[in-house]
Design a protein around this nucleic acid. Structure first.
Length: 555
RNA sequence: GCGCCUGUAGCUCAGCUGGAUAGAGCAACGGACUUCUAAUCCGUAGGUCGCAGGUUCGAGUCCUGCCAGGCGUACCA
């Protein structure tokens, strides 16, 4: 609020200076207001004079000098302006001008930081989309945390968000799943059978085979292998998806839609897409296969959509799927993928472009891998051998809050070491508790305060005036940053910005708490400080909610 | 070979898309509990931002070339 007012003031100062003949050009760039790192540089600063110097044909400091008088008279809350360094204009804000920030926070409550940035545009976030051939592992957990948080942040920033899970319930691997279960099932009846390496090795396969036996008896043994595999595949995939859905719910993640790949085949959608490609001459035949001309749209080589055995590739259904997404009316489509799929992006962008959609409206968030550690030592994992730590294991061991928070303490672009021992530790090594502790501490103060005076009493104007110590102002300034953080986080789809902000705010609060008593003998001071810390509490709760992490009243 | 990602304090990472004197947390060292929750705080120390050029008033950030690590380069999904 202060910042945008300042922006306006600077803009008007430049206009007036030009109107009164002090600046030759009216070609004004966008005004950027930033917060200097160093205290002596003021509360805010602008580099406008430096940017304009060339156009105005005068040195930056001269431009700043021309602007300065207009700025100083613009508002009473601008206490002082300085011209510094190569031509920065620094603003010092009157200490009593910060109070209204708190009023804004309390009025907006859990909507503080929300914006109309997305202008109501429809956006889809597709994430996790793990194959229904086994339980989710830790890597999926990171993808889930990132996708879910991005979705929350975008929704909070004025987008109409839809969350979707794409189920790869078609193709060879699902047959392999069926075969794996069938073999284990047959073994239960004493048949000695080789269990190939290509099959899924985990114990969960055996468990499903047992359940199937309990349910169906020996009925499958009399079926043809093809029929039995299909039965097993359908049964197992259904069970696994249900498990995945439950694991994600336990992780605080839910979806608006579960989209089946098989449904694209059943409805003829894949064939229709291929037909369209043919009509548009975006495919050609070579070596008995059908190739999509992705090189026409920036890919490095053309890609097969129908193999020479007549079977479509995974890419074919993906083309159909993404066309279908945009036909559903989304302005933007976001896919969250594991970083090992990055080679797939150019062809997917090409496919989107080929269907006449601006490829910029399709974006992929690549989430780097998770290295699972225990006490600093790597935890051996091998999907092939069926040895892996599942997301459910992690949630059971360290809790959903800790896991989600830690997944979001890194930019998704960089690999993440996830240490199970560290995540469990309820100490200052663990940032989750550091942040949650703020909320609990303030809740505790409120519990105590209510003995003496009601927290939700309308604020005495005098009480706001109490909050002018540097300690108070520093904390309020921190709160004032929140909406900008959210907006940047939405613009770049980077939830870790929220995580880092919360850690910083938590640090500022803990520091404040150790210096200033909230509940004092003076009722006005107490009121003012309660007003301040409950605002902190709201922002903490608000930010944690965007990460999908709870804000406890007791710890 | 080609493509993508990464390289910042001893360790793990931020750095608001080009701003001023480089920022946290761990780890190290020294302090603070009769107090609204010590799951906390205060202080000290720690740097050739992988290397070399370039762009400009100004580069950790942008461009080029190297070096190192990870991943990818299917008629698999």
């Amino acid at each position: 609020m202060i910042k945008s007012n300042l922006k306006q003031i600077v803009r008007e100062a430049a206009q007036r200076a030009h109107a009164e003949g002090h600046l030759p050009s009216d070609d004004f760039p966008d005004v950027e207001i930033e917060e200097p790192k160093i205290e002596t540089h003021g509360d805010f600063s602008t580099n406008l004079a430096m940017i304009m110097a060339k156009v105005q044909k005068m040195p930056p400091r001269k431009v700043a000098e021309i602007l300065q008088p207009y700025l100083e008279e613009a508002a009473a809350w601008i206490q002082q302006t300085d011209i510094a360094g190569p031509g920065f204009i620094n603003f010092f804000i009157a200490p009593d001008a910060w109070g209204p920030v708190l009023t804004t926070i309390h009025a907006a409550n859990d909507r503080y930081g929300a914006s109309a940035f997305g202008k109501g545009r429809k956006i889809q976030v597709e994430f996790v989309s793990s194959n229904p051939t086994g339980p989710l592992h830790v890597g999926h957990g990171r993808g889930a945390a990132v996708g879910d948080s991005v979705a929350r942040i975008l929704a909070f920033s004025g987008y109409d968000v839809q969350r979707e899970y794409y189920i790869n319930d078609s193709g060879r691997q699902i047959r392999t799943l069926g075969l794996s279960v069938l073999l284990r099932y047959s073994a239960l009846f004493g048949e000695s059978i080789d269990f190939p390496e290509t099959c899924y090795q985990g114990d969960y396969i055996i468990e499903m085979a047992r359940a199937l036996k309990d349910q169906q008896g020996d009925r499958l043994l009399s079926q043809s292998e093809d029929e039995a595999v299909t039965t097993c595949a359908r049964y197992a995939a259904g069970l696994i998806i249900e498990g995945i859905r439950q694991d994600l719910l336990d992780f605080g993640v839910s979806f608006d839609q579960w989209f089946s790949e098989q449904s694209l085949y059943d409805s003829g959608r894949v064939d229709a897409s291929i037909a369209t490609l043919r009509e548009k001459k975006q495919v050609y035949e070579k070596d008995g296969a059908l190739w999509f001309k992705s090189t026409d749209f920036g890919d490095e080589k053309d890609r097969v959509v129908v193999r020479n055995n007549g079977i479509t590739t995974y890419f074919a259904s993906d083309i159909a799927y993404h066309q279908e997404k945009f036909e559903r009316g989304f302005d933007r489509v976001i896919d969250v993928w594991g970083a090992d799929h990055h080679g797939y992006i150019p062809r997917m962008k090409a496919a989107v472009a080929a269907s006449g959609v601006n490829p910029e409206n399709f974006q992929v968030i690549l989430v780097q891998l998770v290295n699972l550690l225990r006490g600093g030592a790597p935890v051996a994992m091998s999907t092939r051998a069926g040895e892996f730590v599942t997301l459910q294991d992690v949630v059971n061991e360290v809790g959903s809050d800790a896991a989600r928070f830690l997944f979001l303490t890194r930019h998704y672009d960089s690999p993440l070491d996830f240490d199970l021992e560290l995540a469990k530790q309820k100490s200052n090594d663990n940032p989750v508790y550091y942040v949650q502790y703020v909320h609990a501490r303030i809740a505790s103060i409120c519990r105590k305060a209510e003995i003496d005076l009601p927290v939700d009493a309308p604020l005495d104007p005098q009480a706001l005036a109490v909050l002018t110590d540097p300690e108070d102002v520093q904390l309020i300034k921190q709160l004032n940053r929140y909406p900008d953080i959210i907006q940047t986080s939405a613009r770049f789809m980077e939830p870790h910005r929220v995580t880092f902000y919360l850690m910083t705010l938590a640090g500022a609060f803990h520091s404040y708490y150790n210096r200033q008593r909230v509940l004092t003998d003076d009722p006005i001071t107490t009121k003012g400080r309660l007003y301040l810390v409950t605002a902190v509490q709201k922002v903490i709760r608000n930010g944690l909610a965007l990460l999908g992490v709870s804000a406890p009243d007791h710890m």
